[in-house]
């Protein structure tokens, strides 16, 4: 079964159509990248899939692991295995990362009818992941994103993904605001995650090609004006970098 089947998805924000018939299927074990200029609808897509309030779906359907995704509450989507790495992660003062992730893991395990792992195992696992991502373990005791630098916030998103092991991860401009070293750490983190979870899928949403040097996509899509206008392999991304979006749009 496909991981996610997005069929002719249309969505508006404040009555203004942003997604105008987007179609996309992701199979287990594949990495898709969606590239597009500013305002093409990239972040809208990630928000609509995650169920963020304020977006109105006006047409089309989305099936996630065979279920009607759009009928599910945001937390149900998360429990079903859909993860969004936010472009701008919000701060939650006073709630520690550890506590936050434990609550999330427990909620997700409960929704799946599983017994959550003992707290001590969770803590050990989180320390391992933090170390892999070059984060000091004190980081886990700090409030969620509270006073984090831009790079720390992004690494924190990858830490959460690695820990929660979602079936499908949507990385919304995770590369923005990262320096070269941080980009490599994030890229390695995602690659390691895919190696350890070979049947899981990833949807990379990005403006630039540079993240794709670290996470090699199986399929690349180009999104402009709310529609996917071209689909190809890795080389499409490289071509985009040479010609720019304008060149590609003109040609199509």
């Amino acid at each position: 079964m496909s991981l996610i089947v997005i069929d002719n998805l249309q969505a508006s924000v404040n009555g203004k159509p942003i997604l105008k018939g987007l179609t996309l299927t992701i199979e287990p074990g594949t990495v898709h990248a969606i590239m597009g200029p500013n305002g093409s609808g990239k972040s809208t897509l990630s928000h609509v899939l995650a169920g963020k309030p304020g977006y109105e779906v006006t047409g089309g359907s989305v099936r996630f692991k065979g279920r009607d995704l759009l009928a599910m509450a945001p937390e149900e989507r998360a429990c079903a295995g859909l993860f969004l790495a936010f472009q701008y992660p919000v701060e939650i003062p006073g709630v520690s990362n550890m506590e936050f992730l434990r609550a999330a893991a427990e909620a997700q395990a409960k929704a799946r009818g599983e017994t959550p792992p003992p707290a001590i195992d969770m803590m050990r696992r989180l320390r391992e992941i933090a170390t892999e991502l070059g984060l000091h373990t004190d980081f886990l005791k700090r409030g969620v994103n509270e006073g984090f630098s831009g790079g720390e916030k992004k690494r924190n998103e990858i830490l959460q993904m690695t820990f929660l092991r979602p079936a499908l991860s949507i990385l919304d401009e995770t590369d923005s605001g990262l320096d070269i070293d941080a980009l490599r750490i994030v890229g390695d983190g995602v690659t390691r995650f895919l190696r350890d979870n070979p049947t899981h899928g990833v949807l990379l949403i990005t403006h630039y090609q540079r993240l794709l040097n670290h996470i090699v996509p199986d399929v690349v899509h180009v999104l402009t004006d709310g529609r996917i206008i071209e689909t190809g392999d890795r080389s499409l991304a490289l071509r985009l970098e040479e010609q720019g979006y304008v060149g590609l749009v003109d040609r199509t």
């Binding site: 937390e75 939650i92 999330a104």
Partner: peptide, 22 residues
């Protein structure tokens, strides 16, 4: 929404946020 996206329902989320606040 961040909490919901991580699978934490709003009730638990508010309780966590309030506890963090205190």
């Amino acid at each position: 929404f961040l909490c919901a996206q991580r699978g934490i329902d709003a009730e638990k989320a508010v309780s966590m946020i309030v506890n963090g606040f205190c």
